[in-house]
């Protein structure tokens, strides 16, 4: 399961701050929702199910977008390192 670092801060407006690196980002509402689910520790299947219910998105496109998003979280050092591929 993907595990996010516990000290990553997310504001209600979608502003993300990584206190380890000092970097900050802004998420759109969809990104914010995905971010929160990953932070809560939900697994891929659970997140996929919810997204396919809420949004009109093809399974394969969601999978790609999910992987891209998680890859970005890794590259910005927001995920725990032992979970890296």
């Amino acid at each position: 399961m993907k595990k996010m670092k516990s000290n990553i801060a997310l504001s209600e407006s979608g502003f993300v701050f990584n206190p380890n690196t000092g970097e900050s980002f802004t998420l759109n509402p969809v990104g914010q929702q995905l971010f929160e689910m990953i932070r809560e520790g939900q697994d891929y299947q659970s997140i996929r199910k919810k997204f396919l219910e809420i949004y009109e998105v093809e399974d394969s496109i969601f999978e790609k977008d999910y992987e891209d998003f998680v890859h970005l979280l890794h590259s910005y050092q927001m995920m725990e390192p032992d979970e890296q591929a």
Binding site: N7, P19, N20, T21, G22, E23
Partner: peptide, 22 residues
Amino acid sequence: PIRKQYITDKGKAWGGISVGDE
């Protein structure tokens, strides 16, 4: 520790943020 956020052409930090990098 800080991350330099805004750096002048002289390489001086004109803005920065405190970070918690162990």
